[in-house]
Simulated scan of single mutants.
Amino acid sequence: MVGLWQLYVSASGVDPLLVAGPVDVARALAQGFADGRLLDATVLTLQVLLTSMAIGTVVAAVLTTLATWTRLGEDLLALLTSILNPLPSIAVLPLVILWLGLDTQALVVVIANAVVWPIAINVTTGFRTVNPTLVAVGRTLGLRGWRMVRDVLLPAALPHILSGLRTGWAFGWRTIIAAELVFGVAGGGGGLGWFINDARYFLRTPEIFAGLVTIALIGIALDLLFALVERRTVVRWGMAGRA
């Protein structure tokens, strides 16, 4: 793919302002990490995203636990999911900025909202599809409430939980890049989306491609990490087939 990319740039005579070649992009990547601009942008984006993922995961865990315990919690989760899950999180960012200001808090709220619902949906599906025999055995052993969730439902629903985390990560990743492209972070500077948009303003095309390549590499790394966790857990435990 890199060879075809370089061949196109070399043979087509495309304007370098439109498409930068792999050599120029590699140079921009090296320079961006050497001077700290691209490195700082990447670290900031990941910090905000990981914070939002943690908050969203906790909220999703609380909602799904309540939905498992009570009918009211189940109805509440169904209502919130039907309202907020189809709503693009980036669409509520202007309103959140009015409430919280143009800083990382607004991004954290918006991204947490983006990740809560896919995680909650997958975990709830996992709980509902747990083998009834396992639940019956847990009840026979005296497990109730949180102990039932912790010792029976969570391990049995692990494939769905990992799927929800992977989907939530993807939702959050897209949301934070889109938000940074438009609003930046902390009102003036920020993460990878801001880095790409800043490069666009000053026609630094290799830096735009460098930011995109960084996003792609992080996506590949996280996909490999999720695959490793799945192999070490659900595949090893016989809960899913080996791909």
Rank of each mutant, 00 (worst) to 15 (best):
G3P: 08
L4E: 10
V9M: 06
V9F: 02
S12H: 07
G13L: 09
L17I: 10
L17P: 02
V19E: 00
V19M: 03
D24E: 15
G32F: 12
R37H: 14
V43T: 15
L46G: 03
L49P: 03
L50R: 00
T51M: 00
M53N: 07
I55G: 09
V59M: 10
V59K: 00
V59W: 08
A60C: 04
A61E: 04
T64M: 08
T64P: 11
T70Y: 10
L76A: 05
T81K: 07
I83F: 11
N85L: 13
N85M: 11
P88F: 08
S89T: 12
V92Y: 09
P94C: 04
V96G: 04
W99G: 05
W99D: 00
L100S: 02
G101N: 06
L102D: 08
D103Q: 12
T104A: 06
Q105R: 12
V108W: 11
V109Y: 09
V109E: 03
V110C: 13
I111H: 11
A112I: 12
N113V: 13
V115Q: 01
V116M: 14
A120T: 07
T129M: 07
N131L: 03
N131F: 04
L134F: 10
G142R: 02
G145V: 11
W146C: 15
R147I: 09
M148V: 01
R150M: 12
D151K: 10
D151G: 01
L153K: 14
A157H: 14
L158M: 13
P159S: 13
H160W: 02
L162N: 09
T167W: 10
G168R: 04
G168I: 04
W169A: 03
W169Y: 05
A170R: 08
G172C: 05
G172T: 02
W173C: 10
I177H: 07
A178G: 04
F183Y: 14
F183W: 14
G188T: 00
G189Q: 15
G191H: 14
I196F: 00
D198W: 15
D198M: 15
A199P: 07
R204A: 15
E207N: 14
L212M: 12
T214G: 00
A216D: 05
L217M: 11
D223Q: 06
L225G: 09
V234H: 05
G238A: 05
